[in-house]
Amino acid sequence: MEINNELIKKLKKLSGIELNPSEEERIKKDLNALLEYQKMLDNIDVDGVEEMISPVESLTSVLRKDEVEGFDNRKEIINNFPESKDGFLSVPGIHINEEE
């Protein structure tokens, strides 16, 4: 399979993105490079290699049991914060501009 201009047009339509001609060429080049890399990976002999579900050999050595711990400095943090309301930190709201 080769990524061509027709496929790029289809992908643009499906994704709903706008691309200028130079961006289209760059994406076409990058996708073709990815396909070439995939072909190289397809040629690797993996017979006899056990499937790996995680790159970490022993999940128990990395993960720990979640434990609830008390936190005693809550009031001090709230008192040091610039604004608070009803025992919670007060931060500026996020306003989304509908025109963008």
Rank of each mutant, 00 (worst) to 15 (best):
T60A: 05
H95D: 14
K75L: 03
T60D: 14
E24D: 04
M1H: 09
V49P: 00
D30Q: 08
R74I: 15
L41R: 05
F71S: 02
E24L: 06
I44C: 02
L14I: 10
D47M: 03
S58I: 09
E50M: 03
G87T: 15
G93I: 14
L14H: 08
G93N: 05
E18W: 00
T60K: 13
F81E: 07
E67P: 02
N97H: 04
L89K: 13
S54M: 11
P92D: 10
L41M: 12
A33V: 10
N79Y: 04
V56E: 13
L35S: 14
L11P: 00
N73C: 02
Y37V: 10
K9F: 09
S15C: 01
E83I: 10
D30P: 00
L7W: 03
I94L: 08
A33K: 14
I44W: 02
D47F: 00
I17L: 07
E18N: 04
M40P: 00
I53C: 05
L19G: 01
E24S: 06
H95N: 08
E24Y: 03
S61M: 04
I94D: 07
T60R: 06
K9S: 15
L35K: 15
S22R: 03
G16N: 08
E100W: 05
S61G: 10
D47N: 14
S84A: 14
L11C: 04
L7Q: 07
K85V: 14
I96A: 05
L14T: 06
N4G: 13
I53W: 08
E99N: 08
V68E: 13
K29G: 03
K9M: 09
D72P: 06
S61T: 10
I77F: 12
E76K: 12
M52V: 15
P21A: 07
S54E: 12
V62M: 11
N32K: 02
E51L: 11
D86K: 09
R26Q: 10
Q38W: 06
N4D: 15
E98Y: 00
D86F: 07
I96R: 07
V62Q: 07
V56M: 12
K28Q: 05
E83F: 12
K29I: 07
P82D: 08
N32I: 02
D45I: 06
P55S: 14
V68P: 07
E69Q: 09
V49Q: 10
D42E: 15
K10P: 00
K39Q: 07
M40E: 14
S61L: 11
S90T: 11
K12W: 01
I3V: 15
K12P: 02
F88M: 14
I53Y: 12
D86S: 14
Y37C: 01
S58Y: 07
V68S: 09
E6L: 08
E99K: 10
T60V: 14
A33H: 11
E6D: 14
G93Q: 06
N5Q: 11
L59N: 08
N32T: 03
I96H: 12
I78W: 12
S15T: 06
K10T: 12
E67W: 00
N43V: 06
N32F: 01
L35V: 13
D47H: 01
N73L: 04
I53F: 04
E2Y: 01
L35E: 12
R64Y: 07
V49Y: 05
R64K: 13
E36K: 10
R26M: 15
S54Y: 09
E2D: 06
E50K: 13
E18T: 09
I17E: 03
N4R: 06
I3H: 02
K75M: 05
